[in-house]
Design a protein around this nucleic acid. Sequence first.
DNA 1: ATAATAAAAGATAAAAAACTCTTTTATTAT
DNA 2: ATAATAAAAGAGTTTTTTATCTTTTATTAT
Lengths: 151, 151
Amino acid sequence: MFQQIKTMFSKSCEYAIKAMIFVAQKSKEEQRVGIKEIAKGTDAPEHFMAKIMQDLSRRKLIHSAKGPNGGFYMDASDLKNSIADIVKAIDGDTIYKDCVLGLKECSEKNPCPVHFEFKEIKKNLIKMIENNTLAAFNEKLDSGKFFLRNK
Amino acid sequence: MFQQIKTMFSKSCEYAIKAMIFVAQKSKEEQRVGIKEIAKGTDAPEHFMAKIMQDLSRRKLIHSAKGPNGGFYMDASDLKNSIADIVKAIDGDTIYKDCVLGLKECSEKNPCPVHFEFKEIKKNLIKMIENNTLAAFNEKLDSGKFFLRNK
DNA sequence: ATAATAAAAGATAAAAAACTCTTTTATTAT
DNA sequence: ATAATAAAAGAGTTTTTTATCTTTTATTAT
Ligand code: FES
Ligand code: FES
């Protein structure tokens, strides 16, 4: 039988958000962060995380430098990215567009039975992830009251 | 590279919700609904849907009868089940308990950076799926303004 | 009793997601 | 120039999810 574990985002996306927050924190003073440090700091498998970072880099959500003293870092404009930007880069915009019950199209014309119930929920969810930028997190997290790993 | 398609529920769970709504509609007058009809009516692969129905049946969310004139059906008490009951049966209670960023524990003591932001969203989501019973859908859907398939 | 029906169960198969290992490329410092 | 570093890219493997096919069991009607 099946044992599904279904969370809001894909594992890749979870890692991506954690990594972005992690690097944002360290990027405050021109520091670069290596993939090993990122993986450790976020409880993610190193090589898998590397792929995700490459992806985020390709999509211009983060900067990277090769060679000694290289690593990942963010500039001021990178810090303006929101959780939504990360989610869109990794999981795509399915939470924006897709029908909750998997109909081919989510529309007001052909709504599934739960369309209107979920409309409001989705609106709030989207608003939240769009309003929360990495810069905003940076401030909040300086208090040290939040965690990216716990074992 | 990856192209994730991440929706709120697993495919199994989407099918389960659709099937439950489908059977609820047909169960109004002691009708039994065969697996073929359910699969067709919900755009789901027949044998896969069969597994899901067995699962729902084992978990007492729906009744079934073998043999001629057999099929799936609901009694009054089955109609009291909510979307939440279906989700819990198929996807488990991860949306209740799990950390959005995948920390081992979701807690106020060790909150991840998005914990408090998502708290409210999750609360609304849970409230919604708990408040929407199949019986409630049945009334609403009689208007014929909702769809379980569209191709 | 027998045949027909339909769900239940079992066993694979295909596809997607998650994860690992190896090689290459760019950069820096010696 | 050379060696060391670290990201990028390539090429897998493993696990989970989704889907299909086959056999069995229970029920009904003849
Ligand atoms: S049609 Fe299903 S959520 Fe819009
Ligand atoms: S700790 Fe992450 S959502 Fe609660």
